[in-house]
């Protein structure tokens, strides 16, 4: 871990100014010389591994009093970015009206980490690719742009089958982001020019030819809140993994349905553990709208979700697994009692 100056932000303006102070040296965001510290579960981890080397760390936890509210108002939901994963997962109204959110959080990490990690930090967490995390490997396009990708032909069981490029196959590891993208969440971003909002689906960027750029967030910008329209009581988060708990997903699905009189009015399907970014399976979910659910339909949806998937030596199984996870999650969502 490199030396850094530590500053505690007393208000958002100060935080934003501190984070954008050396803007020229701050691109891409993942390499920015000033980094915000929220729960620390990604930043401190990666700094210890020497993967991230900020010269300045701006502790934004003091902003929690303004940025951590959990506000379901019956027809919409607003979540402060500094709300802790554990608090949101345990919130009665979230569990009732947005089970996909509660479960995606509850099934992530451990109780301790969920007490530390914030929602904003959670969506910004970085890949668990072993070759990315081990700086003794020079060839990582995400860490050293243009250096190659050690995972492509390495041990890649945990890697992505969707949204990959010839530069990077690193998996987006989180769970909560799949719930957000499925529910058409809007992310509120606070920066120098004030606050702006955009669809959460526009936050993450697939690796393409620039895997070092992971989000559209600019240096000096902080996620301050997420908002979701409507209630989604018929929603599930299904997560498959080797271990029963405390493990990243091999494959997961966030599914939300609006079913009336047996007909699917609206359907959302997002995939985790299998893609380079939080993945919305829009073409697959389109097959559901206006239909009555049956097993054959679930299979068609599952296949559509992985139509463009591309496996490699150790991770091809994720295509079949992912399809079964989607089909099962749909089944669970359809049959759940609400």
């Amino acid at each position: 871990m490199r030396s850094f100056s530590y500053r505690r932000a007393s208000d958002p303006d100060m935080a934003v100014r501190a984070l954008s102070a050396a803007a020229a040296a701050n691109n891409p965001l993942t390499k920015a010389t000033a980094q915000p510290l929220a729960g620390g579960t990604t930043l401190i981890d990666l700094m210890k591994l020497d993967v991230m080397r900020p010269a300045a760390v701006v502790d934004i936890n003091p902003l929690a009093h303004a940025w951590s509210a959990i506000e379901p108002d019956g027809e919409a939901l607003r979540l402060g970015a500094l709300a802790k994963m554990s608090d949101v997962a345990a919130h009665a109204e979230i569990r009732r009206s947005y089970p996909v959110i509660a479960d995606s959080l509850r099934l992530a990490a451990s109780a301790q980490l969920r007490n530390m990690a914030t929602l904003g930090g959670n969506v910004m967490q970085r890949t668990r690719c072993s070759y990315f995390r081990d700086v003794s490997y020079e060839n990582c396009n995400k860490r050293n742009p243009g250096s190659g990708c050690a995972a492509m032909d390495g041990v890649n069981r945990m890697h992505a089958v969707l949204g990959t490029s010839d530069q990077c196959i690193a998996t987006y590891p989180g769970d909560f982001a799949q719930a957000l993208i499925a529910l058409d969440a809007v992310v509120e971003i606070t920066g120098k020019a004030g606050t702006r909002s955009m669809p959460f689906a526009q936050l993450h960027k697939a690796p393409g030819s620039t895997p070092e750029i992971e989000t559209t967030l600019q240096p000096g910008e902080l996620i301050s809140a997420f908002s979701i329209q409507g209630r989604w009581p018929r929603s599930v988060y299904l997560k498959a993994r080797d271990r029963q708990s405390y493990e990243f997903a091999l494959s997961s699905a966030a599914v939300a349905l609006d079913v009336q009189d047996g007909t699917i009015r609206d359907a959302r399907v997002a995939l985790g553990g299998v893609a380079t970014v939080p993945w919305r399976a829009r073409e697959a979910e389109a097959l559901l709208k206006g239909e009555k659910f049956d097993e054959a339909l679930a299979q068609r949806v599952a296949h559509a979700a992985f139509a463009d998937a591309r496996g490699r030596r150790h991770n091809s199984f994720k295509i079949g697994l992912g399809r079964r996870v989607v089909a099962r999650a749909l089944q669970q969502a359809v049959t759940m009692e609400i």
Binding site: Y6, G39, G40, T41, I44, D45, V57, Q112
Partner: peptide
């Protein structure tokens, strides 16, 4: 409860 190893 938190992990003290990731807390500055």
């Amino acid at each position: 409860r938190v992990v003290s190893c990731l807390t500055l």
